[in-house]
Amino acid sequence: MESRASLSAKSELSAHDEVEFLSFVLGEEHYALDIMSVKEIRGYEPVTKIANAPSFIKGVLNLRGDIVPIVDLRMKFNVGTVTYDEFTIVIMLNVCDRIVGIVVDAVSDVIKLSSEAILPAPEFGAAFDSRYLKGLATVEEKMIILVNIQALISSDELGLIDTNSLSDQE
């Protein structure tokens, strides 16, 4: 489990226009999300299934007294092979005052990117809507897709948040 305190301490040392991202793997592709939204990283545990939910919502689990939904991004975006074993990773996110866990193939690294290093994302095909992208970056010859995790988690597409409660708030 990564310690968030030490990570944020590091980010304070870095130049102010640099942002730290946590990179992870889905299938063959490398993705990254803003490290400040990461609560913790843990192994996959069996979840409690939920009725009337899309298949990529695996269910809910108990995170120290909080009932937290788990989303399998591999299923959502049709990448990678969906297996659950001791190496399957769940990234617990803290987004929009909610805790959500996402299942990914692997967590790779913490990368620092300056704003210049982030290129605008081209229009993608169907798999990953560009609404949920921050941009692209190249690290060690690898293309890394930067995910706007906040937009993704709060989107209707995942259906994690009651659309009623959202529209009422607006």
């Binding site: 409690t48 009725a51 939910a53 108990n62 009932i67 805790i99």
Partner: peptide, 23 residues
Amino acid sequence: SLEKHYRRIPGVSGATIMGDGSV
């Protein structure tokens, strides 16, 4: 509450944590 981190589920009023830590 399920709605704190997720949403309302039809037919379900909430959740609880069992003795073994499962939901």
